[in-house]
């Protein structure tokens, strides 16, 4: 019974942490698909992942103008936030901002491609290995204790 409570507590805590991580990813990192972007009303906060088109990057007073290429579809972007020096042509970037009525994006955030799959794979794989090792060792020990007794 105590073992069940112990394992229940540990698994519940891990699942709660994983769920919180997943929620943060959905709210702060995950980009939306272009088809979903087209359906958003003007002024909606969105994130898009795409490549900065070659030859499209231009600096204007207090803003960077570039075109984001998402699977061959073009989205014009006007970026007015910080750290604009990280924007490079042909670089895949995560761009966040408000959708405009003409379909362009008024961006206030740029970040590098999050590649979150690697983060999920790393944490998932290692925690599964450690959980399995703990479980198999505990089961083996219980079996041995029964045999010795």
């Amino acid at each position: 019974m105590i073992n069940w409570i112990r394992w229940g507590l540990a698994l519940a805590a891990l699942l709660a942490a994983v769920n919180a991580g997943w929620q943060r990813y959905q709210e702060q990192v995950a980009p939306i698909a272009l088809s979903a972007y087209a359906q958003q009303s003007a002024g909606t906060q969105v994130r898009l992942l795409g490549r900065v088109s070659g030859g499209s990057l231009k600096a204007e007073a207090g803003a960077l103008l570039f075109v984001l290429d998402i699977d061959g579809q073009k989205v014009p972007v006007r970026y007015t936030g910080k750290d604009g020096d990280s924007v490079r042509e042909l670089k895949t970037m995560l761009v966040g901002g408000k959708r405009q009525a003409d379909g362009s994006l008024a961006a206030d955030f740029v970040g590098i491609n999050p590649k979150y799959g690697y983060v999920a794979a790393g944490f998932g794989l290692v925690l599964c290995v450690l959980l399995l090792r703990t479980l198999t060792l505990e089961l083996k020990l219980r079996k041995l204790e029964r045999e010795v007794a």
């Binding site: 507590l9 540990a10 942490a17 919180a20 991580g21 590098i112």
Partner: peptide, 30 residues
């Protein structure tokens, strides 16, 4: 039990509380 609770807290802090790295982005969480 303490080990797994600490790991759960670490996991929460790593995935939720810690900021992404300027150069490596989200991958730095690894």
């Amino acid at each position: 039990l303490a080990a797994w609770l600490l790991l759960a807290a670490g996991l929460y802090w790593s995935l939720v509380k810690a900021p992404a790295d300027y150069y490596q982005g989200e991958v730095a969480r690894l």
